[in-house]
């Protein structure tokens, strides 16, 4: 296995590289720049970095004003503060206005770990996905984060980029191109498909390898862009496999699983089993212990796959 890297670390480095190439990139943070890794950008480009203090609502509005004047603001803080806390500011000043603001949230999901439920964003995808004009991106590993940051800097309009705290292994093959809105078929299969996002992509690949020994061919698709969904690929996979298991480090309400169920129910109805946080808040603990307690295990994924296959008609 290659070196592990946290997606937030990759984000911080990618920002610096982009900052050298694109002078319109500015960065705002709300007193968490050491954790979100925007401190790297601040160090190299102090005049293009704005520490807004602990005032996230104002930070979102300021970013909107910068974007309205031609800048490309990347706005960072933890996921809970980057979405729910400032939902109305994002809705009215960023999404409704279609301004070119990139919200890059770190510390999302249960793997925030020891800080506990107050800091674990488990509903951020749902909140951002419901907003018109918003693009929602969840990279699977460090390398993909580089690609995603570059892609969203080059696209026009608001984006929510979901990043994580812990170091994670590289799971996306090197050289695989990244395109916003296009899923990545990482493993072919015909019995059912894992549709995973973020750090659950690696787990899904592991589960599919174990399943293969049992004679079950599970496909694995990385849905790094949750909005807009890759409709063509998903409908193709639905026809090919006849059953889906969605996997996300997020509530099963409103996130990837919901998005796919919404698409599938109206276009190609097949069973969709959703693996995620089951309508509950998180708690303190190590990321590893939390992942096990909340069902992000190979065993649980295999069980979900079996359920999905049983429900096939």
């Amino acid at each position: 296995m290659t070196e592990k890297i946290a997606t937030r670390d990759a984000y911080g480095k990618a920002l610096v590289e982009l900052g050298r190439r694109m002078d319109k990139i500015v960065v705002l943070d709300a007193d968490l720049s050491k954790s979100t890794k925007t401190a790297l950008f601040a160090e190299e480009f102090p005049l293009r970095f704005f520490n807004m203090g602990i005032s996230e609502a104002d930070m979102m509005g300021t970013a909107a004003g910068l974007a309205a004047s031609g800048y490309i603001p990347f706005v960072s803080t933890f996921g809970v503060f980057a979405t729910g806390r400032v939902f109305d500011q994002i809705r009215n000043s960023i999404a409704y206005t279609r301004l070119n603001v990139k919200i890059a949230a770190t510390h999302t999901g249960i793997t925030v770990g020891e800080d506990g439920a107050s800091h674990q964003a488990l509903e951020d995808i749902a909140l951002m996905r419901v907003l018109p004009h918003m693009t929602v991106v969840v990279p699977a590993d460090g390398r993909q984060t580089y690609q995603a940051v570059e892609a969203i800097a080059g696209c026009e309009g608001p984006v929510y980029l979901r990043l994580g705290r812990p170091k994670v292994p590289q799971v996306i093959p090197e050289g695989l191109p990244f395109e916003l809105g296009r899923g990545q078929l990482l493993r072919e299969g015909k019995d059912f498909a894992f549709l995973a996002t973020g750090i659950t992509v690696g787990l899904s690949l592991e589960a599919s390898q174990l399943l293969e020994r049992q004679g079950i061919n599970a496909a694995v698709v990385n849905i790094h862009t949750i909005k807009p969904l890759d409709k063509d690929l998903l409908l193709h996979m639905a026809a090919k496999t006849g059953a889906f298991v969605t996997v996300e480090e997020h509530s099963v309400i409103g996130g990837l699983g919901s998005a796919i169920a919404e698409l599938i129910s109206g276009n190609y109805p097949i069973p969709v089993i959703r693996v995620g946080i089951n309508d509950t808040f998180g708690e303190s603990g190590s990321p590893e212990a939390l992942l096990i307690k909340y069902g992000f295990t190979v065993e649980n994924l295999i069980k979900a796959g079996q359920t999905a296959m049983e429900k096939k008609r």
């Binding site: 004003g65 309205a68 206005t97």
Partner: peptide, 25 residues
């Protein structure tokens, strides 16, 4: 119209962003 408003409390933040942009420029 330079900024969509209506949800009260948000305009000064946006104006600050515009003022920062003017300074950067």
């Amino acid at each position: 119209v330079e900024m969509s408003t209506g949800s009260l409390g948000q305009g000064l933040s946006a104006a600050n962003g515009m003022a920062l942009a003017a300074r950067l420029d």
